[in-house]
Design a protein around this nucleic acid. Sequence first.
DNA 1: GTAGGGCTAAACAGCC
DNA 2: GGGCTGTTTAGCCCTA
Length: 387
Amino acid sequence: MDTNNEALPVAASTLHSPHIVCEALAAHPLLPVQPLSPPTSSPLPASSPLSPLTPSHAIPFCPASAQATQCAPSTAACPPPSQGLDPHYPSLTALGDQDDLTCLSWLHQRGDLLTLLPLPRTTPQPLPVQQDSSHSSHLPSSSSKPPYSFSSLIFMAIEDSAEKRLPVKGIYDWIVKNFPYYRAAPGGWRNSVRHNLSLSKSFRRIHREKGQKVGKGSLWCVCPEYRPALLEVLRKTHHCHNTNNSFYSSPLLLEGGDCGPVVVCDTVEISDSLSQTLLLSSPSPPALPSDNSSLSSDAPIPLTTDQEELVTMETIELHEEISEEAEKDPLTDSGYVEFHYYQYHQYQYLVLPGETELDLETVEILQLDAEAQEAAGSLLDLAGGGH
DNA sequence: GTAGGGCTAAACAGCC
DNA sequence: GGGCTGTTTAGCCCTA
């Protein structure tokens, strides 16, 4: 397959790989993606894709704060993938520290699909001192009421669950666990939770199977069609309460903003079998570092307004070789497509199956998904929960 | 002033 | 019968 390294002009509202150009993603700066290995149900090895150094691959152009490389993902990150497992994946070890490439724990799906594969959470790395102090200044005390609405809390609870569905009690537990305020709060909030579940169209009740004897009541999940709205509310809420150093308030989220996760890794099921990596880039690519050390440089690279407002997405060559594992991948015929977000230093990559079509709305949703990950994961820390 | 969202409280019914 | 779950109604507050 041909390698398409050149940045394509922003086109229509439809992003169709391998030629994908995304414009007007001001607040949704997804970065370049390149073709990778066949979709798998598990996160790609860290040594995969991203290889800005490989000439044959698209080069990410969107610079992000160098702090991104310093900020540990506050949310669950995928266990360090093994290196060099796939010859198609340029080893990142050659590019920098393995720590620079991690992924979030979430694996959630879009549409009416529920959780496919829960990712194990890894111990979040401590934030840099500077950011800690910055965040802490915005953190409500453990005894203060979280700024999030019950809908948001429920949403985060469900999204944070492995199955993307929880019984009412599970939601209670999650809230209490992550927001100590509710431990001592009067029981009325539980009524509010139930009230929200029943009243809000955002949540859907799933009747348990007869065979299930665990607990009472039903399981609750998030209605896919309301997910973007919930994410937006969550984002806005966080934005209002974290005006500084919040990746949530930053359009550079996916690029590893100052306080953003170092890496965003997500899977989204859609529909396809071949895998490819798309590279989203800004129109004004900075000079590519000539050596590996430059890639791991901590020097911040300011993102200009123009770059924020115009982001192009490139498609990089897709390796046509399909491993046996991929062919055997049950997802291949499941009608699902798996997306992977990768962030390597200031660049973010979105890996998706070939021939996958993405419209702008989907791209935006993908970013919101990433934000949701943070919301249900590390955001809890930022919000003062989980402790 | 109004509408909408969110929260709280209460009542009620069904289930285990 | 008690506790939990789910639904519904009502009122209040806040914000756009």
